[in-house]
Amino acid sequence: MPGYYCDNAAANDSTACPVGTYNSKAGSSSLQACVNCPVGSYNKNTGQSSCTTCARGYYCDAIGATRQKPCPVGTRNPQVGSTSSRACVKCRIGTYNRLIGRTTCTICARGYYCDTIGATHQKACPAGTRNPRIGSTSSRACIKCPIGTYNRLIGRPSCTICPRGYYCDAIGATHPKPCPVKTYNPKAGSTSSQACIKCPVGTFNRVIGQSSCRRCPSRRACV
């Protein structure tokens, strides 16, 4: 049968061709019938009638290969049957690959950028910035948050609107600033400390960052 040979006519059992070889013919009588797999293919099992074509993301650069070799991180290979590591193409800028044996590169996500060829990871935009686009190729894609917004986290596609009781008066803010005690701010997205209004008579605030003032207890003065 294909994939085997019988070198002893008296024997009832056939011998399997070794790994890295194949035999497409039946009735073979010698180990010489087992042919080494050509480059671009491999065989990890014995007794095979054909070799397996090297898959996408891999290459087989040796005759008689028993396994396929993965393309390294930061590269891709969309072709089957590759015979050299040169088939592993570096990821272009704006993309990356953190895994081996890949057929395509991953597009850099929103909030990140990929500024080198053959990148193995994406770089996060810093706190206080945003990047709403995919596939960015430079840190210049990280835009500072406008006043009235902030970002305390890295790798964000958008900035957070300054909440009620706070204000954001600087470009590229990483945190909102709270209105002081005895004041309040009922509006979101404030851009100045002037948005912090003094509590009117008959109300009070002992805590910072409030959106409203509390009524004074009956028969008691507010301080």
Rank of each mutant, 00 (worst) to 15 (best):
Y4R: 06
C6N: 11
D7W: 07
D7R: 10
A11Q: 12
S14A: 09
T15S: 15
P18G: 11
G20R: 06
S24M: 04
A26Y: 00
L31D: 11
L31N: 10
Q32K: 06
A33G: 15
N36C: 01
V39S: 06
G40T: 08
N43L: 11
K44D: 15
N45V: 05
T46G: 12
Q48R: 13
S50F: 06
R56K: 13
G57C: 08
Y58T: 13
Y58Q: 14
D61N: 15
I63T: 15
I63V: 15
Q68Y: 09
P70M: 00
P72D: 09
P72F: 04
R76Y: 10
Q79N: 12
V80Q: 14
G81W: 00
G81R: 00
S82H: 01
S82Q: 11
S85I: 01
C91Q: 03
R92V: 04
I93E: 10
G94V: 01
N97H: 08
T103A: 14
T103E: 14
T106H: 04
C108V: 07
R110Y: 00
G118N: 02
T120R: 05
H121Q: 10
Q122V: 00
K123Y: 09
K123N: 10
A124H: 01
C125H: 07
A127V: 02
S138K: 02
S138T: 15
R140N: 14
K144F: 09
T149I: 04
Y150L: 02
L153R: 13
L153T: 08
G155N: 05
P157L: 02
P157K: 06
S158V: 07
S158A: 13
I161C: 10
P163L: 01
R164K: 13
Y167A: 11
K177S: 15
C179H: 00
C179E: 03
V181W: 01
V181H: 03
T183F: 05
A188D: 09
A188S: 15
S190H: 07
T191E: 13
T191I: 13
A195M: 04
C196P: 09
C199R: 00
V201R: 08
G209W: 02
S211W: 11
S211C: 11
C213L: 09
R214M: 11
A221C: 02
A221P: 01
C222P: 09
